[in-house]
């Protein structure tokens, strides 16, 4: 399906991120490379994201796809690879306390996907902003086990 293109795009994306991390910022024409917004929390003491960084950068779509089928068909609602959780952690308010939309390059997903020229249609249906402000959230956090540590 779309995955060969996606993978190729991701490789480009990773290359971009590596270049960003390795090269001295002074050397770069900064605007050309994606500025990826920081996450709100670490997954654990040892690990920044839900999988090692090189793995999640390369394979996040596989994790999401797997989780998607588990959730939709089998009602498995673990948090580790849930798209909602990704958004909760990675999409935060800007200085004006507004959340960037997927159409903006300030959005976590688009920051890299625009750079890598890989289009995604996830957010035609899925919410591109966190659920934080929703009432049920306090309740669900108590009942959903996996990420309690990470999100604190």
């Amino acid at each position: 399906m779309i995955f060969p293109t996606l993978r190729r795009g991701m490789l480009a994306c990773i290359a971009g991120i590596l270049a960003f991390l390795c090269l001295s910022p002074a050397l770069l024409a900064g605007e050309l490379l994606p500025v990826v917004p920081p996450a709100k929390a670490r997954f654990s003491e040892e690990q920044a994201c839900v999988e090692p960084l090189d793995d999640i950068r390369k394979n996040h779509m596989e994790y999401l796809l797997h989780q998607r089928d588990d959730t939709v068909h089998d009602g498995i609602r673990t948090k580790q690879h849930s798209l909602t959780e990704c958004i909760d952690c990675h999409v935060g308010p800007d200085q004006n306390n507004e959340y960037p939309r997927i159409s903006s390059n300030d959005h976590f997903c688009s920051s890299c996907h625009t750079y890598a020229a890989v289009s995604i249609d996830c957010f035609q249906c899925h919410s591109d902003r966190p659920a934080e402000n929703l009432q049920f959230e306090t309740l669900s956090r108590g009942m959903m086990p996996d990420l309690n540590n990470a999100t604190k």
Partner: peptide
């Protein structure tokens, strides 16, 4: 502005 727990789309 779909709800995060209720994805819906065109």
């Amino acid at each position: 502005d779909q709800k995060p727990y209720s994805p819906r789309g065109k």
